[in-house]
């Protein structure tokens, strides 16, 4: 589960935290796009350095590293698959290794590209970003509710498990099939309680005028600051330059040329 570690809410007051979430979202998308078009170790290293630097400035480096560690198994899988699919048709070992390393590296950059956004943006800011992107409120409400009620449901699940264990249910004993069957006494009450809760929530939403106006307003809003524009402008310039260079065929250590390096060994 640690791959999702980065998606949690961590309040913070650093400079990075205060950047407008839309700007951070754009930067994350730029990083993802560049990782997609550059299969190049140097560019990928540059990208991941940018991430590491900003994340460190925001004081969430340790969390980010945990996200990295969480992606190890998936990365390993990609490495093996790439290596095998390159080697089997008779590809040279060095070249295949080169591909495997670069693809794996790229995957890691992919997986971490949104860390900057998710690690330094509160769910509330995400919701505001969505509303600014003109996503219908029903969807935003669903997103917010999911985050709001996840801890509540987790507590409820724990207390149901405790109650059923007190009635002699041994969840961690027996064979797989019987273990699955043992989940019924936990899942049915959980489901019934979720239904009851949704009914109560719906009732409360009704008296709080949910859906009353087609033009819902928002008390809190995102305020884009001059510094945000500056950061965005810088990011766009860098991104555009990178795209231009790629289109023109420049790449400092592009995979195919880079492979000659391997071959030379």
């Amino acid at each position: 589960m640690s791959i999702f570690e980065g998606l949690r809410f961590r309040p913070g007051k650093s400079f990075i935290h205060r950047i407008d979430p839309r700007v951070k979202l754009s930067i994350s998308i730029f990083i993802l796009s560049l990782a997609a078009i550059y299969v190049d170790i140097i560019v990928l290293t540059l990208l991941i350095s940018v991430e590491a630097f900003t994340v460190a400035r925001a004081g969430v480096l340790r969390l980010w590293l945990r996200t990295l560690r969480g992606s190890i198994y998936l990365a390993l899988l990609v490495f093996i698959i790439t290596l095998v699919t390159r080697l089997l048709p008779g590809g040279p070992l060095a070249e295949s290794l080169g591909y495997a390393v670069t693809y794996t590296y790229r995957l890691v950059v992919f997986l971490t590209s949104f860390s900057l956004f998710f690690l330094t943006t509160t769910p509330e800011e995400i919701a505001l970003t969505l509303s600014r992107l003109r996503i219908p409120y029903e969807y935003i409400f669903a997103f917010v509710s999911a985050i709001r009620f996840t801890p509540v449901l987790a507590d409820e699940m724990r207390s149901i498990m405790d109650a059923q264990r007190s009635r002699g249910l041994e969840l961690d004993r027996g064979r797989l099939l019987s273990r699955v069957r043992k989940l019924i006494p936990v899942l049915i009450p959980l489901l019934v309680n979720v239904l009851r809760r949704s009914y109560e929530l719906a009732e409360a939403m009704e008296v709080k005028c949910f859906g009353a106006s087609k033009k819902r307003t928002y008390l809190r809003d995102l305020n884009i600051k001059p510094s945000d524009y500056a950061i965005l402008a810088a990011a766009i310039t860098l991104f555009a330059t990178a795209i231009y260079l790629r289109v023109m065929g420049y790449a400092p250590l592009q995979i195919l040329t880079g492979l000659e390096l391997f071959n030379g060994m």
Partner: peptide, 22 residues
């Protein structure tokens, strides 16, 4: 001892036990 072993000695009725039927 496990919960199942101890439960025969001490029966615990939860606060919201009425929400745990299945």
């Amino acid at each position: 001892y496990t919960v199942a072993q101890l439960a025969t000695h001490a029966g615990l009725v939860f606060q919201n036990a009425e929400n745990m039927f299945f």
